[in-house]
């Protein structure tokens, strides 16, 4: 018997994943246990309203405002909450700062923990076996796969999100970005730079 239905009743549903979720959604809707309109609302929230632009605003503000940067270090949850960024999967935030001597990178080796209110739903690669397995042991090889090469003197600190603490990387402010507005700075901040697998964009006209 390939499946034990008593332990793994999912095998009773259609095997094709799109049909499987449709079947379960239909059963639950018929019983009044889910509301299709609520599902649409959840999807709209994470598809259109909550994503890495939130985190980019936090980073740009930290680059511009030393007081805010200090507040982030003191209590990141409170500091980002004041900007309206609090909620599911971001209840306990810690911000870790990159420096010339240390680069930070975030992973969840056991599942897919990720700071949703600041970065949205994690990209596919973040949830992949390859990233989960290798980021902790071979961070430089993984960074090379993202096109990132660090200076030889820079160490890497990998944060494995094993609890309900969610980590956001504060990348270093790019050279040549002096005098830019917070809005212009936010445009330089990539999602991957806040996970630690990328670096911010260089400002236009920078060497």
């Amino acid at each position: 018997m390939p499946h034990d239905h008593s332990d793994h009743p999912h095998a009773l549903l259609p095997p094709d994943p799109a049909l499987r979720v449709k079947a379960l959604e239909t059963i639950l809707t018929r019983k009044g246990l889910i509301d299709p309109a609520a599902l649409d609302e959840i999807i709209d929230t994470y598809q259109n309203r909550i994503g890495p632009r939130n985190g980019a605003q936090v980073v740009a503000r930290a680059w511009s405002d030393p007081g805010f940067r200090a507040a982030l270090q003191e209590d990141a949850t409170a500091a980002v909450s004041e900007m309206g960024f609090y909620g599911r999967q971001g209840e306990h935030m810690v911000v870790v700062e990159n420096t010339p001597s240390q680069h930070n990178m975030v992973v969840c080796t056991l599942c897919s923990c990720y700071p949703w209110p600041l970065l949205g739903i994690p990209p596919g690669w973040y949830k992949s076996d390859a990233y989960r397995a290798r980021a902790v042991r071979a961070p430089r090889k993984v960074l090379a796969e993202f096109g990132v090469t660090l200076l030889p003197e820079t160490s890497v600190r990998v944060w494995d999100s094993t609890a309900e603490i969610r980590y956001l990387v504060l990348p270093m402010r790019p050279e040549g970005s002096d005098g830019l507005s917070e809005q212009a700075l936010a445009a330089l901040v990539t999602r991957d730079s806040m996970i630690g697998t990328g670096l911010p964009r260089a400002p236009e006209g920078a060497p």
């Binding site: 994943p17 979720v21 379960l24 599902l39 959840i42 999807i43 598809q47």
Partner: peptide, 8 residues
């Protein structure tokens, strides 16, 4: 269907 799974 990924979105539906997350939402359900």
């Amino acid at each position: 269907w990924h979105a539906r799974v997350l939402a359900v």
